[in-house]
């Protein structure tokens, strides 16, 4: 039996070493997000990044959370998590989490997002307004959604994404329906509108 998980050890080590998991992303200051995008926050955010996943929050991820998932490959599953790690398991193996397939269209990607959340225990996941959109100057899609935590807290979300070179790029913003989602929505939309890739994609 594991007495302490690796994550805890890392966190404790961080504490002992005086490091913080979250750093400040000050308003108006351009930065590189998830090692992939150029972005400018419109308000102050707290950010945590690991390789090609990054999370922004103001009050805490349970209350408001902007996740960037970058370069998800064929066969990888989504993991909208703070320390996102892509599961490169085999495609469609029994019981494995659903995976992105390179020939997926937006409808299927929206399904994938829904399934990923449902598997993590979220309830009543409903998608609305799936429509074409652009992300980082590339054709893509967006949709809104609502869901509920296991304990019954209502939440809202929006997602914007694109597939380039058989890889999926997604930005997902979620927040508690009461007060929090609406509070930062405009700031999120502005930042997403201005996103660009650090390296040009075909």
């Amino acid at each position: 039996m594991k007495t302490i998980s690796r994550t805890v050890m890392i966190a404790v080590a961080l504490t002992l070493g005086g490091c913080n998991a979250y750093t400040l992303a000050p308003a108006g200051q351009p930065l590189v997000v998830a090692s992939t995008f150029n972005a400018t926050p419109k308000i102050n955010w707290s950010r945590m990044q690991k390789d090609q996943t990054e999370v922004w929050t103001v009050d805490g991820p349970l209350l408001d959370k902007l996740t960037f998932l970058s370069g998800i490959k064929d066969g990888a599953s989504l993991s909208p998590n703070n320390l996102g790690v892509f599961n490169q398991g085999p495609l469609t193996a029994e019981g494995n989490p659903p995976a992105f397939r390179k020939d997926m269209v937006s409808i299927e990607i929206a399904e994938l997002v829904k399934e990923t959340y449902t598997r993590k225990g979220y309830q009543e996941f409903n998608i609305a307004n799936l429509q074409p959109d652009r992300l980082a100057n590339n054709d893509g899609f967006r949709f809104d959604f609502t869901f509920m935590t296991k304990d019954g807290l209502d939440k809202e979300g929006l997602a914007v994404g694109t597939v380039i070179d058989n890889k999926l790029y997604l930005a997902i913003y979620t927040g508690a329906k009461e007060h929090y989602f609406a509070k930062y929505k405009d700031a999120v939309e502005q930042t997403l509108r201005e996103l660009t890739f650090t390296k040009a994609k075909s």
């Binding site: 504490t15 490091c19 103001v58 009050d59 805490g60 807290l153």
Partner: peptide, 29 residues
């Protein structure tokens, strides 16, 4: 009231997860 208590539970969990001065403290809080 039930919904508010659920929101408070989440806010309470958040406060405890991100106490100022700890490893998961939020620069914005």
């Amino acid at each position: 009231q039930v919904k508010l208590i659920k929101l408070h539970e989440t806010v309470g969990a958040t406060i405890q997860n991100h106490l100022p001065g700890t490893a998961f403290a939020l620069p914005t809080m």
